[in-house]
């Protein structure tokens, strides 16, 4: 539980003269739920893209699942799952076809995706609609399905970029239950969010302001440090000093 799976040291991303991510350092332990917080435009998404092998960093050091983000982006991609900000499955494919497709591009064998797909459909209670096009499903279900598919290939880490945007509180709760379950199964969860109540669910969090990590601790630790009762207040104090 204590070995670290993501190690970041002075990681920087520059676009021209603009430093989107300014020398951040952090460490994520295996199996923990790590909340990656920050205001819009603080550099969260850029940082996450670098860690998931989508974007090459300008300078610094970072190891993800034991691979270097500068040289081994392909190995990183194989060992992570990724769920984007926007809904990331195909609306014009059925649930089954989506599962088959993502299983396919992650190199799962036919038997594997079939088995896992069936288990997943059963667990989410989608048996009756598995042959339906995705666009006919409510958003909450799609979101849960997207998460399940993102961890279909048993990644070591799953990156979730604002996964609960636009869904109702009940679905959000259910979604977090799924996150807990995944973490319980040993998958490290790296999640960005705007909702401060969700931040409370995380084991540890970091807060980014203007490309820098300004706060980095457990939710309890942060509340104590800033002498406030909720994460919301912590956020306001950190973001507007």
């Amino acid at each position: 539980m204590s070995s670290s799976i993501i190690e970041v040291e002075n990681l920087t991303k520059r676009f021209g003269t603009f430093k989107a991510v300014d020398s951040i350092s952090l460490e994520v332990k295996q199996g923990e739920i790590f909340g990656f917080l920050g205001a819009n435009g603080a550099g969260k998404t850029t940082a996450m893209k670098m860690l998931s092998g989508l974007l090459s960093p300008t300078s610094g050091k970072a190891m993800v699942a034991g691979f270097d983000v500068f040289k081994q982006q392909n190995q990183i991609k194989k060992s992570i799952g990724y769920m984007s900000q926007r809904f990331s499955l195909y609306d014009d494919l059925t649930i089954k076809e989506n599962i088959r497709f993502y299983g396919g591009i992650y190199g799962l064998k036919r038997k594997q995706w079939k088995e896992k797909g069936e288990r997943l459909i059963k667990r989410l209670g989608l048996d009756e609609v598995e042959g339906k096009l995705l666009k006919d499903l409510p958003l909450g279900w799609k979101q849960k399905l997207a998460f399940s598919i993102a961890i279909l290939h048993d990644p070591k880490i799953v990156f979730l970029d604002e996964p609960t945007g636009g869904v109702d509180p009940i679905t959000r709760r259910q979604f977090w239950e799924m996150i807990y379950e995944a973490a319980h199964d040993g998958i490290t969860v790296f999640v960005t969010t705007h909702y401060m109540d969700e931040a409370e669910y995380c084991d540890r969090i970091s807060m980014m302001v203007d490309g820098r990590v300004e706060a980095y601790d457990t939710p309890e630790g942060l509340k104590k440090k800033y002498g406030v009762k909720t994460m919301n207040e912590v956020f306001i104090k950190v973001a507007r000093p």
Binding site: S52, N74, K77, K78, Y82, S84, I105, Y106, G107, F159
Partner: peptide, 9 residues
């Protein structure tokens, strides 16, 4: 979905 595709192997 392009992002997800690019994040895949």
């Amino acid at each position: 979905t392009m992002e997800v595709l690019l994040a895949s192997p």
